[in-house]
């Protein structure tokens, strides 16, 4: 029963599996995102208060969602790596960080663009925006720590400790920011907190969320492949895999 799990721990197996899955996932993700975009921008009715301005949530909400779930993936992979000494789990964590940081950045930028017409300013020290900004710094810290070590093994273990400390701290940081925010200013928007969103508006959002998730997994698969190649560069199977990719470079002895 555990063989599939052990197989995942084998670099050549994962390399091939990720290579097979990545294009499929990417195509499904592209189709879903296209459907969600069409549904969100064209089919969904305009909001009675915000007009067409609300449509940016079709990018904003999935990005914000991904920014948090990718950190959870990173911390889980780091814990698996530290506990079971699974090197490939570290590769997954390392490959996830820049993707997560990008989604966080996207969520911040789309939030600012949405805030400009709605709040009349690009930036408000709103609880969610602020904790999203802190999350971006946490991602940068993770990536900065990795970059500080030249040895991959050391970078793996150090950044794993940081990711786990971060996952304990992030909820505390989030709630302290929420608490701070409610004391300092009245909540500007309750619209998005209101779960009563009509079906016409909801389904493109759900399609987008699924599409963003698949997109992340496809990018992750591709990035993990290149991580694995870099980490295993002295292994025999890497030479063979590269020979298959670039037959003209094959050294004929």
């Amino acid at each position: 029963m555990w063989t599939w799990f052990h197989k995942l721990g084998s670099p050549p197996h994962l390399y091939r599996l990720a290579g097979k899955l990545a294009p499929w996932l990417l195509w499904i993700a592209i189709v879903l995102i296209a459907v969600g975009t069409y549904g969100g921008l064209v089919l969904a009715p305009p909001d009675y208060q915000q007009g067409d301005g609300f449509r940016i949530i079709y990018v904003h909400a999935p990005s914000a969602w991904m920014s948090m779930s990718i950190y959870t993936v990173m911390a889980t992979a780091s814990a698996i790596g530290l506990i079971w000494r699974m090197k490939l789990a570290f590769a997954v964590a390392a490959a996830s960080a820049p993707v997560g940081a990008s989604f966080t950045f996207l969520a911040l930028v789309t939030g600012a663009i949405w805030g400009q017409p709605m709040w009349g300013t690009w930036w408000v020290w709103d609880a969610r925006l602020t904790s999203e900004l802190i999350l971006l710094f946490v991602y940068f810290g993770y990536m900065g720590l990795r970059a500080a070590f030249s040895e991959v093994q050391k970078a793996d273990r150090a950044s794993a400790v940081l990711a786990i400390v971060g996952v304990v701290n992030l909820p505390i940081i989030h709630y302290s920011v929420v608490w701070w925010n409610t004391l300092h200013q009245v909540s500007t928007v309750t619209k998005l907190d209101n779960p009563s969103i009509s079906m016409d508006m909801l389904w493109p959002l759900l399609v987008m969320i699924v599409g963003f998730n698949l997109f992340y997994i496809a990018i992750l698969a591709t990035r993990v492949r290149s991580e694995v190649l870099g980490r295993e560069r002295n292994a025999r199977w890497v030479g063979e895999a590269l020979d298959d990719l670039l037959p003209e470079n094959r050294v004929t002895a």
């Binding site: 710094f137 946490v138 940068f140 810290g141 720590l145 500080a148 940081l162 302290s176």
Partner: peptide
Amino acid sequence: AGGLLALLVLPLMLPVLV
């Protein structure tokens, strides 16, 4: 490590500051 240390530690210290 000074700048890196600030980047790692300051976000974690935020609740204490608040």
